[in-house]
Amino acid sequence: MVERYELAPKLSPGYTMSRLLKGGWHLAGGHGDVDRRQAIDDMAAFVQAGITSFDCADHYTGVEELIGDFRAAYPDLGRRIEIHTKFVPDYDRLTSCDRAYVESIIDRSLKRLRVDCLDLVQFHWWNYAVPGYVEAMGVLDDLRRAGKIRLLGLTNFNTATTREIAAAVPLAATQVQYSVLDARPERGLVEFCRAQQIGLLCYGTLAGGFLSEAWLGKPEPQEPLANRSLTKYKLIIEDFGGWGLFQELLGVLRAIGEAHGCNIGQVATRYVLDRPGVAGAIVGATSTRHLAGNLRIDSLRLDAAQQARLDAVLAKRSGPPGDCYDIERDKTGRHGRIMRYNLNDGRH
């Protein structure tokens, strides 16, 4: 059985989600070929197993359409899912992100997903120096009031801008990178969101697959790496403290997992789910290969000694620095240079 969480009980009483969410980014471009029929059948297997919450985005190429096709192919199962998508205006469109543009993207998501109302729309704004993000959220709130959106959230905002937006628009959730490698949410965001009853939806839990037995005892990989996820999270490992400290962390996670009959990824995910304020963890999956193992996370609990052993390693980490997504926003920096900023315009 997969744990469930009531998200934003004051805003939408009774709306629950599975605490493990099926991520959609790995079904978008840059992660290998996708067999559409198999991807749709895999979605059915996740729902039947109790993972009913799906994470996607307007700019994850083809993923909203895949979920819409799943809903058409499996109508009974399709009615059981919670769909969390995103509104991410292109970087080049920020200066002209008007009401018509916002509504056109939301209407497109509704059509792609084949729904009348989006369960959760998570908003991102690439550049804080460009004004308009509060106004864009105001338009989304108007669409919520009109019945096109159930709940609103953010994705990849730091604490200060989350405070600013929350003062203007009711927020149910914020999606941020949070893992044993990345504790940036603990620098103010967790405390604020707990006080405001804003649930944390966490990605990067498995660091694109680095947090697994496959990398234990292996030499540090060199570029080019196999896919976009590995490229992204290798940078996080470097900021965390380097390959040596990462190997030490993998060893501790493996030892804890062996005591519970679990693997490294399952322990790493349980660690995130047990952090204060966390509503759910997004598990990127291109297949059902790890589905049975993911279901074991529900019963996994770290005892005090195991937690202390893990904390001792984490106390040695040196980063990543700053607040949530701050280093990724620097287009000239190591993290920012690998981003794709204009995926909604249809040319990428």
Rank of each mutant, 00 (worst) to 15 (best):
N263M: 04
P9C: 04
T174Y: 02
L200M: 11
D345S: 05
S96N: 03
E213K: 06
A315T: 05
G199Y: 10
S212F: 03
G277P: 10
L140D: 01
H335A: 08
I198L: 06
H260A: 09
D69E: 15
L27T: 00
A100C: 06
D142H: 07
F192S: 00
V34W: 06
V134D: 11
A207H: 04
A39R: 01
G29L: 03
L201K: 02
L200V: 05
H59G: 01
A172S: 15
G153S: 05
A129Q: 12
Q266I: 04
L7S: 07
F210E: 03
V134Y: 11
I51L: 14
L171H: 04
E238S: 11
Q177G: 08
L295C: 04
F157R: 01
D116Q: 13
D345L: 02
W126R: 00
L225M: 15
G251S: 12
L295T: 06
E238T: 08
V134W: 11
V252K: 11
I198T: 07
E220K: 12
K148R: 14
V283M: 12
A195T: 07
K22A: 05
Q38E: 05
A100Q: 14
R4S: 11
I198V: 10
R114L: 13
D274H: 12
V121C: 10
L118R: 08
L300R: 10
F240C: 03
S53C: 14
M339W: 09
G242K: 09
R289P: 04
G68K: 12
C117R: 07
R347V: 12
T95V: 12
Y91T: 06
L94Y: 13
I264K: 00
L143V: 00
D58I: 04
N344H: 11
G50Q: 06
R187C: 02
R296D: 03
R71G: 14
T288S: 05
S104R: 11
R340N: 11
L235A: 05
S287F: 05
Y178N: 06
F70W: 13
